[in-house]
Lab assay of single mutants.
Amino acid sequence: VTLFVALYDYEARTEDDLSAHKGEKFQILNSSEGDWWEARSLTTGETGYIPSNYVAPV
């Protein structure tokens, strides 16, 4: 399991995006899409895309 933590708040801009709150942890499901990674929030269980530069490894 690849875990990352949000460094900043991010507000989803499309229905495919996933909002993130600073300190929230995510499981990365797919990081092969360049700057946008598919992730699952460990807080809400929701999945979507987050900007890779907004997260760091735990």
Rank of each mutant, 00 (worst) to 15 (best):
V1S: 13
V1Y: 14
T2H: 12
T2L: 13
F4W: 14
V5C: 11
A6T: 05
A6R: 00
L7I: 11
D9A: 06
D9T: 04
D9P: 06
Y10F: 15
Y10T: 02
Y10P: 01
A12C: 06
A12Q: 06
R13K: 12
R13M: 12
T14Q: 09
T14M: 10
E15R: 10
E15Q: 12
E15P: 14
D17G: 15
S19T: 10
S19F: 05
A20G: 03
A20R: 01
H21E: 08
H21N: 08
K22H: 05
K22V: 12
K22D: 02
K22T: 08
G23C: 08
G23A: 00
E24H: 02
E24D: 10
E24S: 02
F26R: 00
Q27G: 02
I28C: 05
I28F: 02
L29P: 04
L29E: 04
L29M: 07
N30H: 07
S31K: 13
S31W: 13
S32T: 12
S32G: 11
S32F: 10
S32D: 11
E33D: 15
E33S: 14
G34H: 11
W36D: 03
W36G: 03
W36F: 12
W37R: 02
W37N: 01
W37G: 00
E38H: 14
E38L: 15
E38T: 11
E38I: 15
E38D: 04
R40M: 12
R40E: 05
R40H: 04
S41R: 10
L42M: 13
L42K: 04
T43P: 02
T44F: 01
T44S: 10
G45K: 04
G45V: 01
G45H: 05
E46H: 12
E46D: 08
T47F: 07
T47Q: 09
G48Q: 00
G48H: 01
Y49F: 12
I50D: 02
I50Y: 02
I50R: 00
I50C: 05
P51T: 02
P51E: 03
P51F: 06
N53H: 13
N53W: 15
N53Y: 12
N53G: 10
N53D: 10
V55L: 15
V55E: 02
V55M: 13
A56E: 10
A56P: 03
V58I: 13
V58G: 03
V58K: 01
V58M: 10
V58H: 06
V58D: 08
